[in-house]
Design a binder for these strands. Structure first.
Lengths: 206, 206
DNA sequence: ATTAAATCGTGATTTTTTTCTTGATTTAGT
DNA sequence: ACTAAATCAAGAAAAAAATCACGATTTAAT
């Protein structure tokens, strides 16, 4: 783990992982690189190169063991390392993410949500409580949480981010369209929903 | 438009766009490549190369006109081209996306939602109606919709995708973790939430 | 007017990523 | 056993992306 896997590779690995899950459900034990490549529309040597990173040898004329591949991907991407996180902003998106149980299988554990709207406080969402944002610094410290998932409105994003940083949050997964200003000690991942989609949609929709 | 802008560039362009919006709100009229580069942690020549694609000349010692840049980005990424879409799957994520008004400013227009749960039918979400999935083929044809946003559970994903394809949907924005099998005439964009995040989160969280 | 600093534009360089190629290996069929 | 087809492995080549470097230009300061 932490071999500093490039983003593109990590992306492909999760796609491979989904295919492995599907194959296991279907009771298929081996899979070949051309099979995977065709499914994803990429080159089969690309797939083999990626698997090389996992130190997972295949067998000529047969392919790779599905179960082993799945395990290596999980190990490499750290699915089993639990990563605690808070969702900050309990609007539609925040609530949807709180209810999105798939996060758990990737090791992302949502502990609680926050909002500044008094109406939302103390509501339970998928067994997670919504707290007033003022409670955040204390909970960050007590629970040692380093990751915040930011789902507040764009206008509030920077201000809330500043507050998170003050509260000692180290990683911000930014679902807002704002480009946050942060010190170098804090890492931001911009989840740029539209960016990639526009590319996809505009390539040939004229 | 459709200069076949690489995904990475398109991603950066949306980030630049957000910064432009911020600058306009702040009443700042010019912006320089080092300013932007520092904000995003990238090289300033990279920013200039990207702007080169927009045919938007800067001025030495001054920078670029914020308003012009914003307009060029919008034109290049096709914000003004309305792209109609259906949301298929009215669970938490589908509903959250239906309520996510930012889509509109990028030209993505959600016309309606679909589900197979009779309890959800006819509910209005952000002025969009939820229809039974059986109504989809007809509406695709009548409204000429080509894009579907797939937010059903993983187990149902392939089956629903097959139905969409039969119904003549051409672009699937796939929010499920399933890797869909589609014919070459249909394009899938996998919104791989966890893929990129894992990379971000695991790089130094050990 | 002169100088210094900031910035653009762009060609060259480097790095990264992808694709191509070839040889070795394994399996299945004859 | 022999042959043919599928597949992996790994190095070479090509393509794409990012960074570097430097001359030209503009502005501000002296």
């Amino acid at each position: 783990m932490s071999k500093n896997i490039p983003e593109k590779v990590s992306n492909r690995l999760t796609l491979y992982h989904s295919i492995m899950v599907e194959y296991i459900e279907a009771g298929i034990e081996t899979i070949s690189s051309p099979q995977i490549a065709q499914r994803l529309g990429i080159d089969d040597s690309q797939v083999r190169k990626d698997f090389k990173l996992l130190n997972n040898a295949g067998k000529c004329r047969v392919g790779y063991m599905v179960k082993e591949l799945k395990d290596s991907i999980e190990k490499t991407l750290g699915f089993s390392k639990t990563k605690d996180a808070f969702i900050v902003g309990s609007g539609h998106l925040g609530l949807a993410l709180a209810k999105y149980d798939s996060f758990n299988s990737y090791g992302l554990n949502i502990l609680a949500l926050f909002d500044n709207d008094p109406q939302k406080i103390d509501i339970q969402v998928n067994n997670k409580q919504i707290f007033h944002i003022s409670k955040l610094p204390n909970l960050v410290q007590r629970l040692g949480v380093e990751i915040a998932i930011l789902t507040v409105p764009r206008q509030a994003a920077q201000q809330v981010a500043d507050f998170l940083i003050e509260s000692n949050i180290k990683y911000i997964w930014n679902f807002t369209p704002a480009v946050l200003k942060v010190p170098p000690t804090v890492k931001v991942w911009n989840e740029n929903l539209m960016g990639s989609f526009l590319q996809f949609a505009c390539k040939d929709i004229e």
